[in-house]
Amino acid sequence: MNTTGTKKGWSLTRARTLDGRLVLRLQLLVLAGFTVFAAGVIAWIGRLIYISWAWQDVFSASIGIALVAVPVFIVLLTIVIYTFWGLVFGKEPESADEMRNLER
């Protein structure tokens, strides 16, 4: 996949009048929000495991569910952070040719 998005996007982004720092801060805020959400779900599952252990209430069932659910949220969080990092800090062209293509 190498044709998606706007070819003029790069130059237009450069020329944007918006405060880039404000946008970056808002982006970081959204990322932080998602991180808190995923961490919250993992913490919730952790609490349910703790309760089942403390109350001797079928600890094995809680562990069984957590073994599936927690990695899912960790993978999702990793993907979101990876995408965020890769896109926000990977927008510069890798070569002069690519830069010319993007600006065309």
Partner: peptide, 17 residues
Amino acid sequence: SVFALGWTGSKRQHRVL
């Protein structure tokens, strides 16, 4: 702008996406 995550269509961004 916030949700476009600085998308410019660069090769690196395509790879990540």
